[in-house]
């Protein structure tokens, strides 16, 4: 790969664009908006992801031909590699937050372990919705979990990604990849208005995706009492690490059997008749 001219051009182009985005995002800075049900905290990272999405060939690149030359397919591919590496300094910073709080976190151990089962709740919430909408086996794939890479692997192996189950999983995966950070970046601060404790919400933010957890926990941390901010981030990072370890097994041994069982019970009752395929 190294020495390849295409790669170098992609590296330079996307690095310049990202630097410009970072500068604009940081200049706008953190903003808070009061909405009916609570306060939304918007962080620079949120403007950054939106700006990044806007400058691709399928969006602004269509309108501005010059932009298409700067950000094309090579740059998009390079950005995919760069994300994984750019995440690492953040990973280091999370370690900084967890280390000093280690005693407190060990004390909250039972809560950390048990809340992992909360991920299963998605089945009870999303599967009925999917069935009411008339989805069949896609419903199983879409609602089995938040569908990050480990789930994609399991579902691909068990059903094949071109099966109805696989289509459902890919759908949720894709939605999460594109809109997950924006969704959780807004939900993070807004969720405080439910009255749940910030530390419980922090644990909930660790769902096995570094960027979603960061979006949820940072916006939560920016919205709580500053004295609690670091603990919120530390809890979220710990929970995310734990999901990284348990997530795969949770899907294999708990979520997947459960979603199939529930499908068999609910489908005859609330599934739409005719068994039509989703369009």
């Amino acid at each position: 790969m190294s020495g390849n001219k295409g790669i170098t051009k992609a590296l330079i182009n996307s690095s310049i664009m990202v630097t410009i985005i970072v500068i604009i995002a940081e200049l706008i800075g953190t903003r808070r908006f009061s909405v009916g049900i609570g306060t939304i905290t918007l962080l620079p990272m949120l403007y950054a992801v939106v700006m990044g999405m806007l400058i691709v060939p399928d969006l602004l690149g269509r309108v501005i031909p010059l932009l298409k030359k700067v950000i094309g397919d090579d740059e998009i591919e390079f950005a995919g590699t760069a994300v994984m590496i750019a995440l690492l300094p953040l990973g280091v910073k999370y370690g900084n937050l967890v280390g000093p709080n280690v005693v407190e976190i060990v004390r909250a151990g039972p809560a950390f372990l048990l809340q992992e089962f909360g991920n299963v709740a998605t089945i009870f919430v999303a599967l009925p919705v999917a069935l009411l909408l008339g989805l069949k086996r896609e419903a199983v794939g879409a609602s089995v979990s938040i569908c990050r890479e480990p789930t994609l692997g399991i579902m691909g192996e068990k059903y094949g990604l071109d099966s109805p189950e696989g289509t459902g999983t890919l759908g949720t995966y894709l939605m999460g990849t594109v809109f997950g950070t924006i969704f959780y970046g807004i939900l993070g601060s807004l969720s405080l208005s439910t009255g749940l404790h910030p530390l419980a919400l922090a644990m909930a933010g660790g769902m096995g995706s570094g960027s979603m957890m960061t979006a949820a926990s940072s916006s939560l941390a920016a919205a709580v009492d500053p004295a609690l901010s670091d603990t919120v981030l530390a809890y979220a990072a710990t929970s995310n690490m734990l999901t990284g370890v348990t997530g795969l097994y949770m899907v294999i041994f708990v979520s997947l059997p459960l979603v199939n069982k529930l499908y068999d019970i609910l489908e005859p009752k609330i599934g739409k008749k005719g068994g039509e395929k989703d369009e």
């Binding site: 996307s14 995002a25 400058i55 760069a82």
Partner: peptide, 8 residues
């Protein structure tokens, strides 16, 4: 990170 993620 998020700027790269957006582009990717």
């Amino acid at each position: 990170i998020l700027a790269f993620a957006g582009i990717s």
